[in-house]
Design a protein around this nucleic acid. Structure first.
Lengths: 202, 202, 202, 202
DNA sequence: GACTAAGCGAGACGGTACGTCGCGTCTTAAA
DNA sequence: TTTAAGACGCGACGTACCGTCTCGCTTAGTC
């Protein structure tokens, strides 16, 4: 986490051979972590387990991530990074549904979000990372959709993206974490419908 | 937890002295637990700590609750149980705001909900208890409000209580757990407004 | 243990009306204890287990025996009490072998002696009871045999019963507890032979 | 326990610093264990106590020994290992007495043998260790003595070392564990005398 | 046939130690 | 410079069984 690899590819002075090594190691760790999470949830994620599976020393893992929560979060971030924003298909309703679907793809597998919820809610460091790397990203995407929706006359011009985001994602998390309701398409539709009504032009 | 004291006060045959003792013990435990949570969060809640502070043996605690999550949840349930449903004040908007306010009073202090989120999302037993003793209770209260709202012409007659509940509570939890936004009155108002619009009569 | 029922049947002054009840309870307890020992050794003997199986309250057991070791020893004593001394068959060798065989019958089943060894060696109370009710009894029996042996000219007149006892029983226990050697008849014969030689008349 | 340091002192490649540390830790543990046993018997031996006194973490102790019995046995083994076999003094009688004396030195202090008797008699693992590291060692020493005795004409050539061993050690344990008789020199002499007669040449 | 005291059942509890889990730290050789 | 490897301290876990306490019901000989 600490430092994000923003280094451009030019100008590698000397002690940079080691960078390649770092990266390889890091990948091995993340891979092992993801697998373990997939197999037995965030609770089943263990630094010792990751070390064993990845063939990396425990020490090495601790050099990169403070603890297992940070590591799990890194897995989540990785996942978000590989997703692309929802394309313009000319239909706000459909685009919003796609948005929800994508969100579920990020959150659900392995129960990472479920497993991390408490940690994120509790530890400011994690929360910040989570917000910057995930919440903000997704809200930006939503903004695109909403702007299009406004242009199409589906949303009133002063629609608050923050609130809209909450109205879509909040219920989703709520079902995921607490109510246990089955995150189905039907529910998604109800949410989208509600959102469209809540911010419909006068 | 397990059994709710429905026994009337007459006809206590014999083994009832035990019951009285149980209750006293249980109260001591819950009190200590609540204090510890208040001081250092659910993470800081330790069965050993509770035992020490309450002067009750660790064993006795385990005789009532499987583990520390169940105990923490019991604290939450206790809190919910002591709250009364929002009164009819003749104004749907106000009643909904009161509903949100009460919800925050249950959830926030000590970060119990935050600390328990992962556990609830992960362990079916806890989830069931949580749903039955908290979600359902609160949704029932909301139903009363919505019914009144319908009668007053503020909501359309087929308003779905489930969805309405999610639209109000979901964002609240979302802010609490992930976005870190300050659960202020302003936000509450935005949510209520959105809800009223989403389910306004045609 | 504390008081051994040596009271003769005459002269029951007053407060001993309830004796019969006591005895029934006591028998139930000892029976359950013996069964449990047979099933899973002295280690598997649990006051709670005995209470459960015998249908007697834990309290009642503690009213008679200080702890589970005393109870187990009581089982052992019971066993010794029901055995009869070896008859005169006219052959010292044979009588000694019978003596050893009987000893094994007392000691072996359920591993009571094994399980109790440490307790006896450690707690003077138990040791005293053990010596008085078991060791002394058996040594007295041996004395009879040796006296007969002396009369028959198989032992020298000044044979020390104590030492003889140790030479027979000691190795037996040693095998039982430590060496793990299989307490077979062959070994018994070797011991008897050695004893006869050690105390043979000049 | 597990591995006996048979590594020669040359060629210690690398991961050997660890070994040194292990050894230091192990010594600290055994020392503390021995002290605790000396103070309050095997019953008073507690892993937690050892951890506290030795300044070693409980975990570390469990990393080496399965449980407190194994640890106690290790103390006994340690004791045996540091003793040297009885020297040839030209007198079988005297050598046998020395043998008994040494045996008592191993067994008696702290009542380790007494406290472990039940455990050894009950758990095959412990029994095996006990036999291999203690019984066999001592019997081998006895063999030396008996061979010398045979050479000197004190024992008949076919003297069975096993039986001889039992005849000497068995009574000793018997006194120690059950009869409570005071393991004095007088008794020792009687045993040695009996042994010499039992296996005297024709 | 009713009295009455010894005996008993039942449940809750405090307490000690257990053996386990996974964490995160440290140290040093080797790559 | 980075990594592997191993040993370690630590805190809390959840469990087992201990032995104790309290109090009301049961029961069996006696009056």
């Amino acid at each position: 986490m600490t430092d994000t690899n923003l280094t451009p590819d030019n100008a590698r002075p000397a002690a940079d051979r080691h960078v390649r090594r770092r990266e390889r190691t890091e990948k091995a760790i993340l891979k092992a972590a993801e697998e373990l999470i997939a197999e037995s949830g965030v609770d089943g994620l263990t630094i010792e387990g990751v070390a064993a599976r990845s063939g990396v020393a425990k020490t090495t893992i601790y050099r990169r991530w403070r603890d297992k929560d940070e590591l799990a979060l890194a897995v989540l971030v990785e996942r978000t990074a590989t997703l692309s924003p929802p394309p313009d298909v000319g239909d706000t309703r459909k685009e919003l549904l796609t948005f929800l679907k994508t969100a579920k793809q990020v959150i659900r597998p392995g129960g990472v979000a479920q497993g991390l919820a408490s940690a994120i809610a509790t530890q400011p460091d994690l929360a910040r990372t989570y917000r910057e790397r995930i919440v903000d990203v997704r809200r930006l995407e939503l903004k695109t959709l909403i702007d299009r929706g406004i242009a199409r006359g589906d949303f009133r011009p002063d629609t608050d993206v923050w609130v809209a985001h909450e109205l879509l994602i909040g219920p989703l998390y709520y079902r995921l974490l607490f109510s246990g309701a089955p995150l189905g398409t039907k529910h998604d539709k109800q949410l989208v419908e509600a959102l469209l009504r809540a911010f419909a032009p006068e």
